[in-house]
Amino acid sequence: MARWEPGTPERLQAAALELFATRGYERTTATEIAQSVGLTERTFFRHFSDKREALFHGQQLLAQAFLEGVNGAPPDASPLDTVARALRSAASHFSAERRPHARARKAVIDENPALQERELRKMADLATTVADSLRARGVDELAATVAAQTGVAVFGVAFGRWVSDGEERSFEDIVTEVFRKLLHLAGDAAPAPQETR
């Protein structure tokens, strides 16, 4: 009966992260994850296609947060202003209570090349989703791609700082700092090289 309790995916995710952190990702099986919370392997596979997905489940919520920011931007907002709104929307989902979990998850991913590759793919998929949403607002192909890739890069840098040891600032404050640094650097950039004839 325990397998039908509400919150089963979250319980499995928490158990998986704890086991990955203490025993190592490669040495932990789906069966062990399920058994550690009194569930069966079959129940685990009802929720996740494999043990890796226990770390990446819920990534659609991050994409949805970005899209809420994009969709909430005024129609005349520039692509970068729209991405800034998307970043603020995503940042609101990263509370101080989530930081210990995020730190542990990042540590597990950092120790495994296959998980690092999966994380990179997740970020690439996010950039594609944001770019598609910008294009749907009428932003041209190049601007949508550059703005979306830039926004995801800002998110990645901010996330890395947010989970670093000793960091206590809010995710939103860090996103704001990184985005301002980007704008400062862009303002300092030399003009694009002129085509020679």
Rank of each mutant, 00 (worst) to 15 (best):
P113E: 04
A54H: 00
L87A: 03
P6F: 03
E18N: 09
P75F: 04
A84V: 08
G24A: 11
E117V: 03
P193H: 10
L185R: 15
A153D: 05
R42S: 15
L19G: 01
E111G: 07
S170D: 10
P191N: 13
T31S: 15
D50G: 15
A147S: 07
V154A: 09
G160E: 06
P113Q: 05
Q60C: 02
A30I: 01
D81A: 10
A131Y: 01
V139Y: 02
A192Y: 09
T31D: 15
L126Y: 00
E168K: 10
V175K: 01
E97Y: 03
R11V: 04
P6S: 10
I109A: 01
H47V: 02
T22L: 13
R105G: 00
K181T: 15
F159R: 10
F179C: 06
V152C: 01
S164K: 11
P100H: 06
M123K: 07
E26H: 09
T8D: 01
K106L: 08
A158N: 03
G138T: 09
E18C: 05
L62K: 03
F179I: 09
L87R: 01
A2Q: 12
I109Y: 00
R137K: 12
A54M: 02
F48H: 01
L120I: 01
V154S: 05
A34Y: 11
G151M: 08
R85W: 13
L80A: 14
I33K: 12
S92N: 09
A73K: 02
L120P: 00
L67T: 05
L61T: 00
A136G: 07
F44C: 10
S89C: 06
P9E: 00
A63K: 10
T150S: 15
F179V: 12
E53P: 00
A30G: 11
V154E: 01
G138A: 06
V146H: 03
D76W: 05
Y25D: 04
F171K: 03
R11H: 11
A65R: 14
A190W: 07
F48M: 02
P75V: 05
T176M: 08
A136N: 07
E53W: 02
Q60F: 12
K181Q: 14
L19I: 08
